[in-house]
Amino acid sequence: MDELNETKCSRVREILTEILDDTADSTRNNLENCTQEVDGERVSMHLQSCDRCQNWQAQTEEMVDMARLLPQFDVSERLTQSILAQVAVVESSKQQQLSWIVYAAAVALFLYVMLFVDAFESVWGIGSWIVGLGTMIGLKLLIAEPRKESQVV
């Protein structure tokens, strides 16, 4: 008989647990309503006659209610600023890496032209060098601009 009761109790608690988890944000009244809906009057009848399950339900509900009231700590502005500063450092190092790649490519191109191409033979050659230099300065400015923006953040 005891064994039969134990089985009933554990089954009722299983159902109550499911209801509690599915309605974690609802009130005790909702829980009672759900109890009626899910397993009809069987669970309610068992609860009326079983002190242990009544206790179990009350304790579990109180514990879950209390968990929702556990204090939540606010985050200080200092921590926020620290996170954003670290992000800015990462961004800046990314930009630096990119600018090094551009510099390396420019130097490689310069050496190639100097060693293998007769670029200074005519006025057009010198003109093309000036255009090339202008492009490099433009690229440099383009890279520097987002870096400044990221430092502001």
Partner: peptide
């Protein structure tokens, strides 16, 4: 796309949850 202001909003939105 490089907009760090957008990341700042994400930080402010979730930092309390993450911290707790």
């Amino acid at each position: 796309a490089g907009d760090n202001k957008a990341f700042e909003v994400l930080v402010r939105r979730y930092q309390k949850l993450v911290y707790n």
